[in-house]
Nucleic acid binder design. Structure first.
Lengths: 107, 107
DNA sequence: GCTTTTGTTGGCTATTTTACCAAAATAAAC
DNA sequence: GTTTATTTTGGTAAAATAGCCAACAAAAGC
């Protein structure tokens, strides 16, 4: 693979890697509904604040979320709402997999 | 996060994690054009066969690709062509980011 | 049967990721 | 100015990931 192409895919992979964690997917899903501050997300996730903060930092770096500082709180929101379409496609994929598995189980 | 929800997101995350690597993204892109055997992909990627094989194994486990054994060769193909839409969406996202960065640089 | 081609698996090391705690930063409230 | 609430950063240990080599497996050809 040539160098130029490699860079292209590294850049893309960064975004997918950011989505490759249950907690971060949950956060993206929630931010798809409405913006949320770190504290709220922390309560929903049920992990340490520092952990959630780092997850958000990663999402921010990948360009998937944006933030808005208001007072002591920082509100995060979805920068690319199209990621929600990803989820729909994924749902179909998983459904398809399950279907195949059932077919296999039933001979 | 309740247990049921956690499982849902772990399952999803597995797929995104599978896409979170430059080599695997490249492979998915190529399989989007046509099916390929491991040997071909290995040449294109330029890594050890065992490495490519493991990447393919991961993609297979996530449900993104399927395979068909013919003779000594194993041909892999894209199981969920909708992932190609992901790439388009991503392209838009990255473009948007670049735009913002330029705007920032130019004041 | 033996060799060749094509893929997978196991072993190993280096790197990355994750999650928690503690400590520091920042803005508001008193 | 000192506390309070919110968030980020640094440190650290455990777990996961990635890549190569060597060894093994399976099908095809001689």
């Amino acid at each position: 693979m040539e160098n130029n192409l490699r860079h292209k895919y590294e850049y893309r992979a960064k975004v997918f890697k950011a989505m490759g964690h249950p907690t971060r997917l949950f956060i993206l899903d929630e931010l798809g509904k409405q913006e949320r501050c770190v504290y709220e997300l922390t309560e929903m996730v049920g992990a340490d604040v520092s952990t959630v903060s780092k997850h958000l930092s990663l999402l921010k770096e990948s360009g998937l979320v944006e933030y808005d500082k208001r007072g002591t709180q920082i509100f995060y929101s979805l920068a690319a709402p199209c990621v929600l379409n990803f989820f729909d496609c994924l749902e179909a994929l998983l459904h398809n997999q399950m279907h195949k598995q059932l077919a296999w189980m039933n001979g």
